[in-house]
Nucleic acid binder design. Structure first.
Lengths: 205, 205
DNA sequence: GCTTGTGAATCTCTTCACAGCG
DNA sequence: CGCTGTGAAGAGATTCACAAGC
């Protein structure tokens, strides 16, 4: 659901301005800074049961906490990264520092020479140990950056080992039981779409 | 619009099976292989004005051509890559070989030591030459892989130089005239969303 | 005047269901 | 039959618009 994404975006902005004065924001400010509309902001916050104050808006620190209660697992979620090619290695630093709740705790690659290394604080394992490590670390979220031909099987192994959400970068259709959330980020398709709209766009506008 | 993405997906699958027998597919086969429904496939093809044959389905090579006519620029689109950090460098090989119509022809980075190099067949320029190269090469599509703090300004410079579509990987809101298509692929937000749904998913399903 | 909260209207996208055809 | 093409219905998401409160 798109609401979940917007809540993440709201929170990112709120964290930037937390601690400053004033200590609250209006729906129109939040909308302006996150690329949506005031009505949408109010509807989203209503939906998660967060109430503002007439005339004062929404308390910033309270709202950050409320979005956290709604979105986050209390103890954070350990994440697996499967596939240490160019893209996989590029993604590691994204989560090495930044994210308080999502931490990549294990990486896997079919190339056994990568096993045992530690990249950006993340331990690398051979693909054969995938199920064992996923179970041991109770990992339920995975990022898939293997080649398209290997994506389906990797996704099935992850699911069998207990993973319930997969962020897939491989240009491949992954069909899993609907209890597993799969989101595919297909760079080629996104670029084709953008090129399509760019082409029908006026030269000056 | 989502239809554009689905057309890309259809085409990718059709190319895989092109040249094999039979030379046509049914809407239910195409739907099955691309993760949608037969009615959706028929609606999408209707929308681009492609007609099938009752009982025989849709001619594969004709459909590939029709989708190409609809989606692609006849001569292909030159693409710029802005930001040669980990992610930017990881994306170059994606388009170096594969794509017949989208080719990264120029890369930019604020680090002048990267200028002049050629990575994956793509020439690197200093950031200062951005406008000049974009105009010279008539680039209208760009991939943005700079840090979040630099994203907005880079996007504005690209737009001023003639770019009309941006695939943005920076976790930043980019606001541009609506004639410019911006698609943000925000990995952190995608992962937060997946973790959210994974958490409410049953352990066995 | 300014806000928020929200029912109702609207817009967009998807699916149904069936006529028409081979 | 089993298929496509499509009007009509349905489902979801967004926006409108206004009551209520400061």
């Amino acid at each position: 659901m798109k609401r979940i994404e917007r809540l993440s975006v709201y929170r990112r902005f709120l964290r930037e301005i937390a601690g400053q004065e004033p200590s609250s924001v209006y729906s129109h400010e939040l909308a302006e800074k996150t690329g949506t509309t005031p009505a949408q902001v109010r509807r989203d916050l209503m939906e998660i049961g967060f109430a503002g104050h007439t005339k004062k808006g929404y308390g910033i620190s309270e709202l950050i906490a409320a979005i956290g209660d709604y979105l986050d697992s209390p103890d954070g979620d350990p994440v697996a990264l499967v596939g240490l090619g160019n893209l996989g290695r590029a993604l590691l630093p994204f989560f090495a520092d930044h994210h308080p709740k999502l931490k990549i705790v294990a990486a896997f690659d079919s190339d056994p020479r990568k096993a045992g290394r530690v990249i950006c604080g993340c331990r690398c394992y051979p693909a054969a140990e995938l199920e064992e490590v996923i179970r041991r670390e109770k990992i339920r979220v995975a990022i898939l950056t293997v080649p398209a031909a290997a994506a389906r099987k990797a996704a099935e192994r992850l699911t069998a080992a207990g993973v319930r959400g997969i962020l897939n970068f491989a240009p491949a259709l992954i069909r899993l039981p609907k209890a597993v959330t799969v989101e595919t980020m297909d760079i080629t398709i996104a670029l084709e779409k953008i090129a399509f709209f760019a082409r029908r766009s006026p030269d000056e506008g």
